[in-house]
Computed example of a mutant assay.
Amino acid sequence: MALANQLPDAKGQPVQRRQSAQGQSRWPLVSLILGGLTAITLSLSLWMIFFYTPVDALQGVTQRIFYFHVPTAWVGMLSFIILAVCGIIYLFKADERLDWLARAAAEVGVVFLTITLILGSLWGKPIWGAWWVWDARLTATLILWFMYVGYIMLRSYMGPGSEGARAGAVIGIIGAIDVPIIYLSVNWWRGQHPAAQLNPKGDLPPQAVITLLVALVAITLLYAFMMVQAYQLQRLQALAQQLRASVE
Rank of each mutant, 00 (worst) to 15 (best):
S31W: 01
S79R: 08
L98K: 14
I40T: 04
S79N: 15
T38V: 09
I81T: 10
G60L: 12
E96R: 12
P54T: 11
E96W: 06
L113P: 04
W47G: 04
V55H: 03
R97D: 15
E96Q: 13
G87E: 06
L42W: 10
Y90G: 10
Q22L: 03
F50E: 02
R26K: 11
T72G: 11
C86Y: 00
T114Q: 09
A102E: 06
T114C: 10
L37M: 13
E107L: 09
G36Y: 00
Q63I: 00
D56V: 11
L83W: 00
R64M: 09
L91W: 15
Q63L: 00
V75A: 12
S31P: 01
L34M: 10
R97K: 15
A94T: 14
L42H: 03
F66L: 08
W27G: 06
T62W: 04
I81F: 01
W27K: 12
A57I: 09
E96P: 11
Q22V: 10
Q59P: 01
S43H: 00
V110N: 08
F80H: 08
I115G: 10
A57L: 04
A94Y: 07
A104S: 14
A73S: 13
T116L: 10
T41N: 11
A84H: 02
T72S: 13
F68H: 05
I49G: 02
L32C: 02
A21S: 14
I33R: 01
E107S: 14
S20H: 09
S45C: 03
V108F: 02
G23D: 14
T38A: 11
S31R: 15
V110Y: 02
Q24K: 10
L42N: 08
L101R: 11
Q63K: 00
S45K: 03
V85T: 15
V61W: 14
A84D: 07
L34D: 08
F92I: 05
I88L: 15
L32I: 09
F68P: 02
A94L: 10
R97Y: 15
G109A: 08
S45L: 00
L117W: 12
V75W: 01
A104L: 06
H69R: 09
G76M: 06
A102H: 04
V30W: 01
A104M: 07
R64L: 12
P71D: 13
Y90Q: 12
G76E: 07
Q63V: 00
V61Y: 09
S43C: 02
H69M: 11
F68K: 04
F112R: 03
L32E: 04
A106R: 08
Q59E: 02
L46D: 02
I82K: 05
S79E: 09
L113Q: 12
L32Y: 00
E96S: 11
V110H: 04
R97G: 12
C86M: 10
P54W: 04
T53S: 14
M48E: 05
L113F: 02
E107D: 11
G35Y: 03
V111Q: 10
A57G: 07
L46W: 07
L117E: 10
F68R: 07
G109P: 09
V55Q: 04
I82Y: 01
V30Y: 03
P54A: 12
A94W: 10
A84F: 04
P71H: 08
S43F: 09
F50R: 03
L42C: 14
I89N: 10
H69S: 11
V55I: 15
H69Q: 12
G76W: 03
Y90S: 14
T72P: 05
G87W: 03
G76K: 05
V108W: 00
